[in-house]
């Protein structure tokens, strides 16, 4: 129980830190960022009153209230689920835009991560088991794979499989000409899968190497433990030693390292979404940055952070369940 209380406390603190960071960043920037921004935007025409208002909310108007009052107002706004109004897609509220994009990112990144985790850990267990043989040459190969920038791989895929050979679509999450919006039909599901294959493949291929390497190294270390030697000496079947003795224990750190790996996947998928014009959170964030839409940018940052925290928390719960040591020592 103590373990869960500790973990929950940690995530609550982290969430508070992320929210406060979001509040503080625009105010911490040296110089008068607000007037610079307004001046810059003013050059390209008149600024609507609503935009001015949303910028003031974001940076805080020092004439109106103290920093503390601004902070309290900001927190209150968040609790009501109000993230402000988008400037680029005026007058759509930020929450609505995020609500449209979120399912696509969770579907794409979530599924791709699970596939890549299962494949990578499985392959890593095998390569570690066959240590000292030709299979060891997989290690440098997967290093190269890991050093490949996600979005560059995505560009290559688009070039090879969507431009040169028209096997897959260049962009979007489903065919906008056949469907006016998401609907419940097999044809629509087919279109989504067809459009999601290349982006998912990119994420799987470029994150696969990391799982493989981590698992392989843990496998090599675990296989030199005494209890594995004992198991061999008892004459247990090799398949039993591999699965029940070695792989099960070696997989634990892979799961513990999930948070770091997830950060890579999220970072990679943001840029990947941009390459495929996949209308998820990453693309939304980039649109916001390019259009100087700060409410939208901070809203997406907050939601991405919350999603990552939630995934980590879930993994912590699973980890605490499968490895009792963490519950007692943690």
């Amino acid at each position: 129980m103590k373990f869960y209380v500790r973990r929950i406390t940690f995530y609550v603190i982290t969430l508070w830190a992320a929210i406060s960071l979001n509040f503080a960043l625009p105010r911490l920037m040296p110089g008068d960022a607000m007037s610079t921004m307004i001046a810059r935007m003013g050059r390209s025409g008149d600024i609507p009153e609503s935009t001015l208002r949303s910028i003031e909310l974001l940076f805080g108007n020092p004439d109106e209230s103290s920093l503390w009052e601004q902070y309290v107002a900001y927190l209150g706004q968040l609790f009501r689920g109000d993230l402000g109004v988008s400037v680029t897609k005026y007058p759509a509220p930020v929450t609505e835009l995020i609500g449209q994009a979120l399912p696509w990112t969770i579907g794409l990144v979530g599924l791709a991560t699970v596939i890549s985790f299962v494949l990578g850990v499985g392959a890593g267990a095998f390569v570690g088991w066959k240590r000292g043989t030709w299979v060891d040459s997989f290690v440098p190969a997967s290093t190269l794979l890991q050093a490949v920038p996600y979005f560059w791989l995505a560009m290559i895929f688009v070039y090879l499989f969507a431009v040169t050979n028209r096997w897959f679509p260049i962009a979007w999450n489903y065919d906008p000409f056949s469907f006016s919006g998401p609907e419940l039909s097999w044809a629509f599901v087919g279109s989504v899968v067809y459009h999601g294959t290349l982006p998912a493949l990119t994420i799987v291929i470029s994150s696969f190497g990391g799982w493989l390497l981590g698992m392989r190294n843990m496998m090599v270390a675990t296989l030199s433990e005494d209890y594995v030697t004992t198991a061999e000496a008892k004459g247990l079947k090799r398949s039993r030693i591999l699965t029940t003795y070695a792989a099960r224990n070696a997989a634990l750190p892979s799961m513990a390292g999930f948070s770091i790996a997830l950060a890579f996947v999220v970072a990679g998928s943001i840029v990947t979404e941009q390459v495929f014009s996949y209308p998820g959170l990453g693309k939304l964030m980039i649109t916001a940055v390019q259009g100087n839409d700060y409410a939208l940018m901070q809203g997406t940052f907050l939601v991405i952070t919350i999603a990552v925290l939630a995934a980590n928390f879930l993994m912590d719960l699973i980890y605490g369940f499968i490895d009792p040591r963490t519950r007692h020592n943690g």
């Binding site: 625009p26 999220v266 970072a267 943001i270």
Partner: peptide
């Protein structure tokens, strides 16, 4: 560590 890196970098770079 758990705050997602690239989104944070994007926000920082954009404000800077």
């Amino acid at each position: 560590l758990v705050l997602p890196g690239l989104p944070l970098i994007i926000v920082l770079a954009s404000f800077a």
